[in-house]
Every structure is written in C-alpha cells, then in structure tokens.
Lab assay of single mutants.
Amino acid sequence: GTEDLKEEAKKALKKGDKERAKRALKKAGLSEDQIKKFIKEVL
C-alpha cells in the first residue's frame, strides 16, 4: 500500500538512493511537488 511505499522511500533515502525513493513515491501516487517535499522532509 501507500504507507509501505513511503517506508520504502524513506529507507532508500537514508541509503542515499534518491532514484529508488522517487520510483516508490510515484507508485504511491504522489505528484512531483509532493515527492520533492517528501524528500526534503526526510533528508
């Protein structure tokens, strides 16, 4: 589900894998702006 994808994105970001995080967030249905915001909040 969406929460799982967001968790996956957080883990990817902590490993420095932004591309993987972006893919997971796109799958979760987030827009580009939401993805940028999510990444900023996590990092």
Score class of each variant (00 low, 15 high):
Ala12Lys: 02
Leu43Ser: 06
Gly29Trp: 01
Ala21Ile: 04
Leu25Lys: 00
Val42Lys: 03
Gln34Leu: 06
Thr2Glu: 12
Leu30Tyr: 10
Lys40Gln: 15
Lys11Glu: 14
Val42Pro: 01
Lys14Gly: 09
Leu30Ala: 01
Lys36Met: 11
Lys26Glu: 14
Gly29Val: 00
Leu5Ala: 08
Asp4Gln: 13
Ala12Ser: 06
Gln34Cys: 05
Leu5Val: 05
Ile35Phe: 01
Leu25Cys: 01
Glu8Tyr: 10
Glu8Thr: 08
Asp4Glu: 14
Ala12His: 11
Ala9Met: 03
Ala12Cys: 08
Lys10Met: 11
Thr2Gln: 11
Lys6Trp: 15
Glu19Leu: 08
Ala9Val: 08
Glu19Gly: 07
Lys18Trp: 15
Arg23Asn: 10
Arg23Met: 06
Leu13Val: 05
Lys18Phe: 15
Arg20Ile: 08
Lys26Cys: 06
Lys37Pro: 00
Ala24Ile: 15
Arg20Val: 09
Gln34Val: 04
Lys18Leu: 15
Phe38Val: 07
Thr2Ala: 13
Glu3Asp: 13
Asp33Arg: 09
Ala9Asp: 01
Lys11Arg: 13
Ala9Lys: 01
Gly29Gln: 03
Lys37Thr: 09
Phe38Ile: 10
Thr2Pro: 12
Lys6Asp: 02
Lys10Thr: 08
Leu25Val: 00
Ala21Val: 04
Leu30Thr: 00
Glu3Leu: 10
Lys18His: 15
Lys18Thr: 15
Glu3Gly: 09
Glu41Ser: 10
Glu8Trp: 07
Val42Thr: 09
Leu5Thr: 03
Lys27Ile: 09
Asp4Ile: 11
Arg23Cys: 10
Lys10Ser: 06
Glu41Arg: 08
Lys15Asp: 15
Arg23Glu: 15
Lys11Thr: 11
Leu30Trp: 11
Lys27Arg: 11
Asp33Trp: 05
Lys22Asn: 08
Leu25Ile: 01
Glu41Gln: 11
Ala21His: 01
Lys22Ala: 11
Asp4His: 12
Ala28Gln: 03
Asp4Trp: 14
Ile35Gln: 03
Glu7Asp: 10
Arg23Pro: 00
Glu19Asp: 11
Lys14Phe: 10
Leu30Ile: 02
Lys26Ala: 12
Leu25Thr: 00
Lys10Gln: 06
